[in-house]
Amino acid sequence: MDVILLQLLNGLDKGGAYALIALGLTIIFGTLGVVNFAHGALFMLGAFCAVSVQALLTISKKVKDESIKFFDAYKEIPYLEAWWGDTGAMIIDYAVPISILIAIPLMLLIGLGMERGLIRYFYKRPHAEQILVTFGLAIVVQELIKAQFGANPIPTPAPEVIAGSANVGLWVGLGESVVYPWWRLIYLAFAGVVIALAFAFLNLTTYGMVVRAGMADRETVGLLGINIQRRFTIVFGMAAVIAGLAGVMYTPILPPDYHMGMDFLVLSFVVVVVGGMGSLGGAVLAGFMLGILQSFASMNEVKSILPGIDQIIIYLIAVVILLVRPRGLLGRKGVMES
């Protein structure tokens, strides 16, 4: 029982990341009709937002290390610590939460720039060319990050206060064997909040309603004299922010490296396909579902019966879904069905 709970939590965690990326992907596909292969790069950029903030906060000066007497030793002390002592150290400790605040406007800008500067020229071009140009963009972004930050994963820990693990098992009456890192729980809650906000925005505000109307029938909404184009641009920016936030929050779980975007992109695409192209609920549902399934498939008990299943389960499900129900779990009828 406790093993199952643990795997469930693990799965929800990964599922949260899939769901957030897939949500953006599907919003972009639904509104702009663009297949964005560079969406993983946005996730990765978010993560490197956190890395940059951490690097900025820890800019250091060299000071003589007085504790070593035999020779001249120097140590590096971040300016923040040098100036403000413990307060400075605490700010550094909170690098990841701080970067969330910075990531939001930054990712919005990046998203808007990307849409205005590149994507909009590809609305009318074939899907193949959209895939190719965004794929090229993804490579470029990835390589720029690699050139700047190197190829190795960069650890960006969560604040010390929540470094430990929560005794989830005790909460639900399963004994002390189920412990789970606090940060992952926070991540899960965060993913839930972002998803809820996105849904609230799209479902409860008139602005979001028009966007959804545009997803359903863009031409008609255009006929009403609404500048749907501007709204779509902003929606693209939002999708970028969502992906970026997912990235920022994921850094304490997985030290970011330059190819994490690509790794998550492929899976997120599969998630979108399983959920239904253009379906927001489908993306979220499929994200969590596949995350959980993947987590259960990597249990030793399962692997001993079906070796290697953990490696391919997601793809296998995608293949089955595409063949049996091509519009995906919650996809609108007729969308992308050949």
């Binding site: 309603m209 028009v210 109307a213 008609t220 006929l223 009403l224 004299g225």
Partner: peptide
């Protein structure tokens, strides 16, 4: 008729239809 959208008033509906 070519009309959708939640926040339209009648005049807009007319105008859109007329345009279409």
């Amino acid at each position: 008729p070519g009309i959708a959208g939640p926040e339209r008033r009648r005049q807009d509906v007319d105008a859109a239809y007329h345009r279409a």
